[in-house]
Design a protein around this nucleic acid. Sequence first.
DNA 1: GGCATCCTGACC
DNA 2: GGTCAGGATGCC
Length: 294
Amino acid sequence: MPELPEVETIARNLATQLPGCQILAVEKLDWERMVETPSLPLFQSTLPGRCVQGVGRRAKWLLLLLDGGWTLALHLRMSGRVGVSGSNPSADRHTHLVLALDDGRRFLGFRDPRKFGRVRLLDAGGFTKLHTAYGPEPLSDQFRPADLAHILSTHHTRLKPLLLNQAVLAGLGNIYVDEALWLAGLHPLRCSTTLTFTEGSHLHAAIRSVLTAAIQRGGSTLRDYRDGYGERGHNQEYFSVYRRTGQPCPRCGTPIERIRVAQRGTHLCPVCQPAAPATHSPIHPSPPHSPHSH
DNA sequence: GGCATCCTGACC
DNA sequence: GGTCAGGATGCC
C-alpha cells in the first residue's frame, strides 16, 4: 500500500493527535514477526510509560518520536493501516499491534491483513542508521534537479527499477513511479544514462508534482489504505495511467498499455512515453521483425 | 537483471 | 483453481 504520500498523510494526521500522549501499555501483539528489533521482551518492556513527542516520516517509514531517545518506526508495506481510535480495536483479527494511550480510552492500532508490515523500536543509533539507509527525500528543498541528474548518470539502469529503489530515492512506489514517468513523458524501460539534462529536470519536476498533488488529496486508496482518522484518500480519482489499462491517455487519447517491469504491473501511454532506445551499443543489427505486431 | 518468498483476500 | 495486489529482501 502506502507510498510516500500515504505515509505522509498518516504522519500529519497523527501529529495532531499523538504528541503529548503517553503509551500506557502494549494492549495486543499477536504477530511477533512484525517486530524486527529489538527483542520482543525489550520491545514489550520499553514502550509502556513512553510519551510521544513528535511524529515524522522517513522514506515509507512512519516515525513516532518517543521520550528517552526512542523512536517507534512502522512500515505498512502493502496492506498496513495505522490509526487512533476511541475504542479498542483488539478484537479485529487483522489488527496485530494495539497500544493503549493515556488513561486507556484511546488506542493506536496497526492493522495488516497480509502481515507484511514491520515495526522497529530504535535507539538513537538505530534512528541514524534508518536515515542513512535511504536516498534523498524527493520533496526536500535539498533535492535539486542536479541531484536527480547525478542519480541518473551514476546508475546504468532502467528508469522504473531505479526509481523504485529506496536506497537511491526515498518514498516512490509502483503508483507514483508510473504516474511520474507518464507526466515526464518517459518510458519506464529507458536507461537512466540516456536521459538529457532537460529530460531529467522534467522527471524531477514530475516526481515532485505527482507526490505533492497526492498529499493534497490525502493519498490514494485502492483497497486497504486509510489515513490516520480511517478516511479514504481520493488521489486515485486523478490517476493518469495507474490501473487505467485500455482507457484513454488524458493527454493524447491513446489507450493506456500495461506491461510488466521488475515483476510489477506497469502502466504507460505508448505515444507520450516513446519506447526505450537501445540501452547498449547495438552489437547486433536491428531485429528482423518489428516488436510491434499491429 | 529475474525469481521466489513473506501473507491474505478479492476477483474471474 | 489461478491471478492479482500499494513492498522489500535474498538468492542465483
